[in-house]
Design a protein around this nucleic acid. Structure first.
Length: 315
RNA sequence: AGCCUAUAC
């Protein structure tokens, strides 16, 4: 059982949820019964791969087999609802867990807060934060990161900063997740200079950077209509050996387009395709309508054909 | 052997 559970855990990293399900079948064939940890791992693998529906199915399947969920299993259930954008359902399972006689741990609270964050319910996230204090649990860096993200996304910049300071005072280490949340907060209120400052501060503090946070900064520039900065950041990343992904390119392209740099946007788009990155439908739509506005019908049609060839649906 | 967090649309 442990071997299979480990194999399924490996699927979490790769995002191969089909393999995870295949291992479940393989277990049955060999007469090995999955336990609560196996199911918890499976749920996590599915949720991370965007298959929250399957995660919930696994939860029901587990109960049907008479396996009682424990706190970790409930936490995965809360996460699945978080991924579904259903904070109220997450809240419901959280209550169910307590009714079943389990004490929620800090991860349960974090998962619940994450559900509020994803559902864009910052006040609910704050409510969870107060629940944590009432339960005499100690907030972790994940707790703060999630709260900062919930507030930042809602454009509640001042509160984001207040809780960030509180996080630092608690002696918790800020990381790339913290930075991303701060950058998003800046983005929502148009404070791109502050975003640049946070980025510099975190670097100076030696916080490990990652592509997601770099993308977030590009997005800040895009929203702030600073296409030159967005482009410079993209090139800087490439020069430093990073491989920009579809989000990096999309944000930069949208920034250029918004700045009236249609030609540049199209060049970047070609570069994106050359890098074998797959654009989403809305990016095609943005560029096609821009070409139409410019009277460049030929390229508009060309883009449309490419979109069809790549089998990408219109947004 | 399992559970919690962040990026544009």
């Amino acid at each position: 059982v442990n071997t299979f559970t480990s194999l399924i855990a490996g699927c979490q990293k790769t995002g191969h949820w089909q393999d995870a399900l295949a291992y479940m079948d393989m277990m049955r064939e060999k007469g090995v019964s999955p336990n609560v940890r196996t199911y918890t791992t499976l749920m996590s693998a599915c949720t991370r791969a965007g298959q929250w529906q399957r995660a919930l199915e696994a939860f029901t399947a587990m109960e049907r087999e008479g396996i009682l969920p424990d706190v970790a299993a409930f936490n995965s259930g809360i996460s699945a609802y978080a991924a579904a954008g259903a904070w109220d359902r997450a809240w419901a399972i959280f209550g169910e867990m307590k009714r079943a006689g389990f004490q929620p741990n800090i991860r349960s609270f974090n998962a619940l807060m994450s559900a509020c964050e994803r559902s864009e319910e910052p006040d609910r996230a704050l409510e969870v934060f107060r629940k944590i204090e009432r339960a005499h649990e100690t907030p972790t860096a994940v707790t703060y990161n999630t709260l900062l993200s919930a507030l930042g996304k809602a454009g509640r910049y001042d509160e984001t900063i207040i809780y960030f300071k509180q996080m630092r005072k608690s002696g918790l280490k800020a990381d790339a997740f913290t930075l991303t949340a701060l950058l998003t907060a800046c983005e929502r209120v148009g404070k791109w200079q502050e975003a640049v400052q946070f980025d510099a501060d975190f670097r100076a503090a030696g916080v490990a950077t990652n592509l997601r946070h770099h993308n977030c900064l590009i997005s800040v520039f895009s929203t702030a209509e600073q296409w030159q900065l967005a482009l410079r950041k993209l090139r800087y990343l490439q020069d430093r050996g990073w491989r920009p992904d579809a989000v990096s390119f999309s944000c930069t392209i949208v920034a250029c387009q918004r700045g009236g740099e249609s030609e540049l946007a199209l060049q970047l788009f070609d570069e994106m395709l050359l890098a074998k990155l797959v654009p989403k439908g809305y990016l095609f739509a943005t560029l096609i309508s821009a070409c139409e506005r410019n009277g460049d019908w030929e390229r508009a049609i060309g883009l449309y054909d490419t979109m069809k060839e790549m089998q990408i649906d219109a947004p």
